Amino acid sequence: MTADCFAENLLTWYDQHGRHDLPWHHNRNAYRVWVSEIMLQQTQVATVIPYFQAFMERFPDTCALAESPVDDVLSHWSGLGYYARARNLQKAARSVMDDFGGTFPDTQEELETLTGIGRSTAGAILAQAFGKRAAILDGNVKRVLTRYHAVPGWPGQTAVLKQLWEHAEAHTPDERARDYTQGIMDLGATVCTRSRPACDDCPLQQGCTAYARGETSLYPGSKPKKAKPEKTTWMVILEDQEGRILLERRPPSGIWGGLWSLPELDPAYGADELQEACEQSLGFDCGEPELIGGFRHTFSHYHLHIQPARLGVTGQNSIRDDAQQKWLHRHEALALGLPAPIRTLLTNPEQATLL
């Protein structure tokens, strides 16, 4: 199958079976396409749709996103994970306003100057928003191309990625770039799936090398596995005499960067030492701790064992609200950007133990 047949067959399939009614297809513009592409990184379409709709309602354009408080942006991202995406989204929106006069750039080079936009995301914006010929290489496209060309190795390796970009550029047609890019993403998401691909329904079956060899399960190659380290922490739900809880803003970079979370204490403390630890680390006296069922939360590069404990503040606390710490009632806390496990812990502690 030639490169032209590849695109032609894919487009014929897309016309009949592709997804034509996703929320970002309506009132299509660079801003809406960009936000959807960032949300879709590491996240499935079904999960993204309600987040996208709520995000658009609150931040309908680049200006609204650029001028909003970061806490508001993070609260609308809470639950999507990979929170650096949300912070980078706002940084890029501010760059569009400051450096491009509020108009989204329409070249690969300019798009890639925006925080959080790489080669594939820039290509998707060019094709989807501006109808320009531009190759993309998200996870779904990588899977289609590694199987079709039987490209060995893990796609995260530089040499493998270079081959895949060459194939992506070769197959992208001059016409109907918008439909082609959506079609190849749809094919990977719905037919050429990670496990049990529906090869009999695939418009590219005739030219697929992995299918011809009966080796679709071998592609793409797996990422070399490393044992994830295990970490442990105490998370304390400190409640003052007004029924407010103490939240702390996490550092801007790293895990849950910029989100609000519960104070943490060194796991070396025993349960019977938590009162003393609160006094030493946070500066006030507490009553007896009430332990809540612990749970494990998995990040991309380690497992975190969280042991929550609820403590009532018995005296006047020495912490005052500032940019990094706040005493809030639960309904106020839930309006902020919180990591999903912390949100669950504050609303339904029993459910958190099942995470």
Rank of each mutant, 00 (worst) to 15 (best):
M1F: 05
M1C: 07
T2Q: 11
A7Y: 02
L11F: 02
D15Q: 14
H20N: 12
N27K: 15
R28M: 10
V35C: 09
E37R: 04
P50W: 03
T62P: 01
A64N: 11
L65G: 10
S75M: 01
A84M: 01
N88Y: 08
L89W: 04
F104T: 00
P105E: 05
L114W: 12
T115A: 15
R119P: 05
T121Y: 04
G123L: 10
A124Q: 09
A127G: 12
R133D: 02
T146D: 01
G156Q: 08
A170M: 09
E175G: 04
R176C: 05
R176W: 05
D179A: 12
T181Y: 12
M185D: 07
C199W: 04
C202D: 14
C208E: 13
T209K: 15
E215M: 10
S217D: 15
A227R: 15
E242P: 00
L247N: 08
R250I: 01
G254T: 05
S261L: 00
G270K: 08
A277W: 11
C278D: 05
S281A: 13
D285M: 08
C286E: 06
R296E: 14
H297C: 03
T298P: 00
Y302W: 12
Q307H: 15
L311C: 07
V313M: 09
G315Q: 12
R330K: 14
L334S: 09
P339A: 11
A340C: 03
P341I: 00
